[in-house]
């Protein structure tokens, strides 16, 4: 039983990291229908920034997690530059597919830039939070786990409020519903989109902090699998829907940690823990087949 609870918390922890990343995907997809493949690599940028700024913060006598402020600044700059230099010109001319391929190339570009700057070996990151483990139901839970889960929920609630209650949120929703109509009502579409990218990138920096708190290393390709799974999470929950990203993230995290722990026992060793990646993708396809727009997504009928 205690193993089970441990696994649940493990899943929640991983899931919260996925959720933070998935929120970034969802924000961007919701507004311009673009799968920002480079989002995983924004996290990598954030992680490398942390790698260099944490020692600075510690030397200056500040808590290590304050480094995330610089991380957010760097990520936002990278995100906005990417949007201005690559995505915006492509969006003007190209189709959905060209935009998607631009995003994929941007991801390759960031990965390879990091590789030529920092080398391909992972760089260790010093401890971010120095927290005591907490006992719940006879299971000791690492402090990082709880912080990760709490931050995940806090970010989700903040984003929901921003999108639903503020002026900028309203213009975001307007752009996502009908770009032409939004222009007519005086919304500065390009600025809204750039701002969305900035928010997404800031979320990536936050996700980098939480990821590195749990797995303290930065490598050029760290964003790849993390980004893919987080994207799966976003699609599972219903992409473009903020609570959906959270739900999907937690779900993917739970599925992953539980399938790692129990699949071998349940299937008599046929499906081993090495299959956990495949299990995540299988669930994605299964959900897409039943609910093509994700769990919380609304099915829109195409009109002729």
């Amino acid at each position: 039983m205690s193993l089970f609870v441990q696994q649940i918390f493990n899943g929640l922890k991983v899931g919260s990291v996925y959720a933070l990343v998935a929120l970034g995907y969802t924000m961007v997809y919701g507004i311009i229908r673009l799968i920002n493949f480079a989002h995983g690599d924004f996290i990598m940028v954030g992680a490398y920034t942390l790698c260099y700024t944490i020692p600075l913060m510690v030397n200056a006598g500040m808590p290590a997690w304050m480094a995330v402020v610089l991380g957010i600044v760097v990520c936002v700059i990278v995100g906005v530059v990417v949007e201005l230099l690559a995505y915006r010109p492509v969006r003007k001319k190209g189709t959905n597919m060209t935009a998607l391929i631009t995003a994929i190339s941007m991801s390759l570009f960031l990965q390879n830039t990091a590789q030529s700057l920092f080398g391909s070996a992972p760089k260790p990151i010093t401890t971010i939070f120095d927290l005591e483990p907490i006992n719940i139901a006879g299971v000791s839970i690492a402090g990082e786990t709880l912080v990760t889960i709490l931050i995940g929920f806090a970010v989700m609630i903040t984003l929901t409020v921003v999108v639903n209650k503020t002026k900028i949120g309203r213009s975001m929703r307007a752009v996502s519903q009908d770009r032409q109509a939004a222009i007519l009502t005086g919304v500065n579409v390009n600025r809204t989109i750039t701002l969305t990218f900035a928010i997404g990138a800031a979320l990536a920096a936050l996700a980098a902090l939480m990821y590195c708190a749990n797995y303290p290393a930065a490598s050029p390709t760290m964003g790849g699998m993390l980004g893919l799974k987080a994207f799966v999470a976003a699609v599972l929950g219903g992409i473009g829907i903020i609570p959906g990203a959270m739900l999907g993230g937690i779900l993917v995290g739970l599925v992953e940690s539980l399938s790692k722990a129990y699949s071998a026992v349940l299937t008599g060793g046929i499906i081993t823990s090495a299959f956990s990646d495949a299990v995540v993708f299988m669930i994605l396809i299964f959900v897409l087949l039943i609910r093509p727009a994700g769990i919380l997504g609304k099915n829109e009928r195409e009109k002729v």
Binding site: I35, L228, V232, V235, D277, F281, L284, I285, L288
Partner: peptide
């Protein structure tokens, strides 16, 4: 994404 999933 579904084809990506199947590839993986």
């Amino acid at each position: 994404i579904a084809t990506l999933g199947f590839g993986e």
